[in-house]
């Protein structure tokens, strides 16, 4: 009888796995920003940059323009795939900031040197603390922030031409127009 019970072991393990998959499927859809973070201001932080470890950047360094924040790492093959497209976007003048997530610093510097650096700067998030505050699920992820540093959208996975055209660019343009109007209003108020 004991042997017969042992034969149920594979089934038990499998059902455990299924439970896990089920939970994973019904967590907040990873493709969308959890509602808790949507329209919230960026978390505060004080971290070094990848290229220059002596330079410290903070939340304020990201403000002023509608921009993308791209979470990347050298251990992530998908980041390799999206990298050339990010370089392309940067060449078109889209401001992109990097968050180098739980990565090896010499490797990351080598990556930026050999594959080109699309980022205004990359924040060194070695411990992953900024990642936790941002609600990072994994790399690559790309956040869209407005000129005041409010998170407006999040994309999980590779950014390619399709994602840019369909998901990111319309929102980017919309936010940019809003930012322009806001500054124009400010000027008017000042004038009055």
């Amino acid at each position: 009888m004991k042997r017969r019970l042992q034969l149920f072991l594979p089934l038990a393990i499998f059902l455990g796995l299924c439970l896990m998959f089920y939970v994973a499927l019904f967590r907040d859809n990873p493709g969308e920003l959890p509602s808790a973070l949507l329209d919230q201001p960026l978390p505060t932080f004080e971290l070094a940059t990848v290229k220059n470890p002596d330079r410290t950047v903070t939340r304020e360094s990201l403000l002023g323009e509608v921009a993308l924040i791209n979470v990347w790492a050298t251990w992530c093959p998908a980041c390799r795939v999206e990298h050339p497209y990010l370089v392309d976007l940067a060449n078109k003048g889209i401001p992109i900031y990097g968050v180098n997530y739980k990565d090896d610093q010499p490797e990351a510097r080598k990556w930026l040197k050999t594959l080109h650096d699309p980022y205004r700067f990359s924040i060194n998030d070695k411990s992953g603390s900024l990642g936790i505050d941002l609600g990072v699920y994994g790399a690559p992820e790309t956040y869209l922030i407005d000129h005041q540093g409010v998170i407006r959208y999040k994309h999980v996975g590779i950014v390619d031409a399709n994602v840019w055209k369909n998901d990111l660019e319309p929102r980017f343009r919309h936010l940019k127009e809003k930012a322009l109007k806001a500054t124009a209003n400010n000027h008017e108020e000042e004038a009055i």
Partner: peptide, 26 residues
């Protein structure tokens, strides 16, 4: 095909499909 993992190969993911395959798998 369910999109539970992020990968270079990921097909357009859709939770409905994920649920279907999961039940099928079960």
């Amino acid at each position: 095909r369910s999109g539970v993992l992020t990968s270079v190969h990921a097909f357009a993911n859709d939770p409905e499909r994920g649920v279907f395959i999961l039940f099928y798998l079960m």
